[in-house]
Structures are given as C-alpha cells and as structure tokens.
Amino acid sequence: MQGVVKVNSALNMRSGPGSNYGVIGTLRNNDKVEIIKEVDGAYEIRFNGKVGYASKSYITIVN
C-alpha cells in the first residue's frame, strides 16, 4: 500500500510506533512512502530503504 506525507513542515520517522522512540529520519510534504502495516495509531513504513514508524494522521493512502 502506498501513502503520501501531508505536513506543513516535517514529520519524524521513528524506530517505534510512538513519540517516545528515537528519530531515524525525516519526512517532508509529498514524500511517497510504502505502508507496511498499522500499529497503535501509526504506520510502519518504508522510505529510502529504511523501515520505521510515522503518525498515520499525516499520511494519506493513495492506492
């Protein structure tokens, strides 16, 4: 499943599905991501070869 990031500035990509996990990357508006699955209000995603988590509130599914 594919998604597009929709933010005003940037969205943190984290090592786990919550803000208490470390930041492993930054997503920008209109970045395209692969959605692997939904976990606790976040999506597990793949972006630029990395797998991490981002809030589903800022990712629009575009299948």
Rank of each mutant, 00 (worst) to 15 (best):
N12Q: 14
G22M: 14
G25M: 11
I36H: 03
L11F: 06
G52N: 01
V62G: 07
T60S: 11
N20H: 13
V51K: 08
K37P: 00
I35Y: 02
I24V: 11
E34D: 11
F47W: 11
A10Y: 15
V33L: 04
R28F: 12
G16P: 02
R46S: 10
K32C: 14
Y53T: 01
T26D: 03
G25N: 06
G52T: 02
S19M: 13
N29A: 08
A54N: 01
I45W: 00
S19W: 12
N30V: 02
K50Q: 11
N48S: 07
V51C: 09
I45Y: 01
S57M: 14
I24N: 04
I35V: 11
D31R: 02
Y58D: 09
V4K: 06
N8R: 14
P17M: 06
N30Y: 07
V51T: 12
Q2G: 06
N20E: 13
T26A: 07
V33N: 00
N48T: 04
Y43F: 09
V7P: 02
T26K: 12
Y43V: 02
Q2S: 11
K50D: 06
N12W: 10
G16D: 04
E38L: 07
N20S: 12
K37S: 14
V62C: 13
E34A: 08
T26R: 11
N29Y: 09
A10W: 15
F47T: 03
R28K: 13
T60Y: 14
S15G: 08
A54K: 01
T26G: 03
S57F: 14
K6I: 10
M13L: 13
S57N: 13
G41M: 08
V7T: 15
Y58E: 09
Y21T: 13
R28A: 09
G16A: 07
I61P: 09
E34P: 01
I24L: 06
E44P: 00
A42S: 14
E44V: 11
G41S: 09
T60E: 14
L27A: 02
I59V: 06
K6W: 05
F47V: 08
I24S: 04
I59Y: 01
V5Q: 01
V51N: 06
K56V: 09
V5P: 01
I35C: 03
S19F: 12
P17G: 03
R46H: 08
R14Y: 15
G41D: 12
V4F: 08
N48H: 10
G22Q: 15
D40Q: 09
S19A: 13
P17L: 08
G25Q: 10
V62T: 11
R46N: 09
S19P: 15
G49D: 08
N48Y: 06
V7F: 06
I61Q: 05
K32W: 12
A54Q: 01
V51G: 04
T60N: 10
T26I: 15
V39W: 10
S15Q: 07
V4I: 14
E44G: 03
D31H: 03
Y43I: 02
I45L: 07
S15Y: 06
K50F: 08
N20P: 05
E38T: 06
S55L: 10
A54M: 05
V7S: 13
V62F: 09
E34I: 12
N8Q: 12
L11E: 05
S19E: 15
E34Q: 10
M13R: 02
V51W: 06
D31V: 05
I35N: 00
N29I: 05
Y43R: 00
T26W: 09
I59G: 00
A10L: 14
P17I: 08
E38M: 07
E34Y: 12
N63W: 10
V5T: 02
N12I: 15
G3P: 01
K56P: 05
K50C: 09
N12E: 15
N29D: 09
I61W: 04
G49Q: 05
L27S: 01
R28S: 10
G16K: 06
D40E: 12
E34W: 14
M1N: 08
A10T: 14
K56D: 02
E34C: 14
G18V: 02
N63P: 13
E34F: 12
S9Q: 12
D31T: 07
I45C: 03
G16I: 03
G41T: 07
V23M: 04
G41P: 02
N12V: 15
N8F: 10
E38P: 03
N20C: 13
D31N: 05
Y43G: 00
V5M: 03
P17F: 05
N30D: 10
V33D: 00
R14F: 14
G25W: 08
S9D: 12
Y21Q: 07
L27Y: 00
I45K: 00
V51P: 03
E34V: 11
M13G: 01
Y53H: 01
A54C: 13
S55V: 09
I45S: 00
A42L: 15
R14D: 03
I35S: 00
N29R: 08
I45V: 09
D31C: 05
Y53M: 02
L11Q: 09
K50N: 08
V7A: 12
G3Q: 02
N48V: 04
R46Y: 12
V7R: 06
G16Y: 03
G18R: 05
R46A: 08
M1V: 12
V39E: 06
V4W: 06
G25S: 09
Y43E: 00
N12H: 15
N48K: 12
V33K: 00
M13P: 02
Y58Q: 07
K37R: 15
G25A: 15
D31M: 05
